Simulated assay, not measured.
Amino acid sequence: MLDLHVNNETSKLKVVVLGTAKKCGPVPLPEEAYDPKSLEHIMAGTYPLEKDMVREMQAFAEVFKKYGVKVLRPKVLEDCNQIFSRDIAFVIDDTLVKANILPDREEEFEAIKHVIDKIDEKKILYPPQEVHIEGGDVMPWNDYIFIGTYTGSDYPDYITARTNKEGVEYVRKMFPNKKVKSFELRKSITNPRENALHLDCCFQPVGKNKAIIHKNGFLVKEEYEWLVAYFGKENIFEINADEMYQMCCNVFSIAPDVVVSEKNFTRLNIWLREQGFTVEEIPYAEISKQGGLLRCSTMPLIRE
């Protein structure tokens, strides 16, 4: 059995589900794109090749191996993009919450059934249909749960709007001992530099008390300012629109002092090392073309 435990984003990682890029299918048609960055690369003819993405994910798996993390993988489905395991479910404390994701992606959850079967069924939540929530928007941070959302009346018009207010309320109800803090995110279907697909595209805690953040990803200035005040300005690394587009916020912590980052994130990686972190740099730029990066590819199940 798996005794789930995830209380924050950075404690030492023990067990993780890492997605897979194998058999991810042909290049999608423009109308099949879930986000503006994928659309941009589909249109430009620069959409990533399966062999390159498999190689990048292998590099990630090697880092986990180096740190003694147990890595579980989904069952490989034919012609299905299974890279972003963060979207399909997430763990808060000792409970796994199944995300209500885009219906086209339902089979991705079935592909981790061998993992789900090892979890006490009393510790699995299946939200009702009106609850939209994805793991990229949900960040347990000790006493808090930070959640990215979009509550505009035009929510149904945005395929990039992933977590609704019902999603926020559901988490609040299911985890009454936590302080749930939601953040309105900026959404765009056409401009990837103006679209925070999930909270982890514009914000991420690292270490014990530091964070990476992109101001323009937040729709409400006060909510962004709350985060800056909470972590302290001196502990925050501000990224610009281009760095957000490159997915600089979407690094992944294996331990409080170990961060896996993309090798081209020069400015960020220098800052992380200056703060005393060990930075494991890997190539992940091809996967980035799909609008997700390192955190998106992982579903932590057990941290210390």
Rank of each mutant, 00 (worst) to 15 (best):
A61V: 02
D154W: 10
A33G: 01
A111C: 04
I254F: 06
A33N: 09
A285I: 11
D242P: 00
K37V: 01
V16F: 00
Y67N: 03
L39F: 04
N191Q: 12
D93I: 00
P48W: 02
K233P: 00
Y158F: 15
G135V: 01
Y170P: 09
E106C: 09
I282T: 05
E121M: 08
N250T: 02
P283E: 13
N164G: 10
N164F: 05
Y144A: 07
T149A: 14
P300A: 04
E194A: 11
E106R: 15
N177P: 00
E169M: 07
E56C: 06
M57T: 13
K210F: 02
F90E: 03
S297Q: 10
V15Y: 00
G135T: 08
V15W: 00
V220S: 02
P156N: 05
A241R: 09
K208R: 12
D87V: 01
R162G: 03
I124E: 09
I189F: 10
I239C: 13
N235F: 07
L293W: 00
S38W: 02
A211W: 12
F84Q: 06
K221G: 04
E184M: 15
A211M: 13
H132C: 14
E304L: 02
L4W: 03
V180Y: 12
Q275K: 12
V260K: 08
S182L: 01
L197A: 06
Y155C: 05
K173T: 12
V206S: 05
S288E: 09
D242G: 00
D137S: 03
I88G: 07
F64Q: 01
R193T: 13
F90K: 04
K289S: 12
I101H: 02
V228G: 03
L125W: 03
P128H: 11
M1L: 12
E121L: 03
Y150P: 08
H214W: 13
K181L: 13
Y155M: 09
P205M: 11
F231R: 07
T149F: 04
C202I: 09
L102M: 08
I282D: 07
K178E: 10
E31D: 15
K289H: 06
W226Q: 02
C249N: 15
V131N: 06
I119P: 05
Y230W: 06
C80R: 13
K14L: 09
E286T: 10
E9W: 01
S253T: 02
C202A: 14
D79W: 07
P127W: 07
K98N: 07
P192M: 02
A211Y: 10
L272M: 08
C296H: 05
E106Q: 15
E121H: 13
I189H: 11
F64V: 00
L197S: 03
P74F: 04
E234L: 03
N216M: 08
K187Q: 09
F231Q: 09
Y284T: 06
V76G: 05
W226H: 04
A211C: 14
K123I: 08
L185M: 10
E130W: 08
L227P: 14
E108R: 11
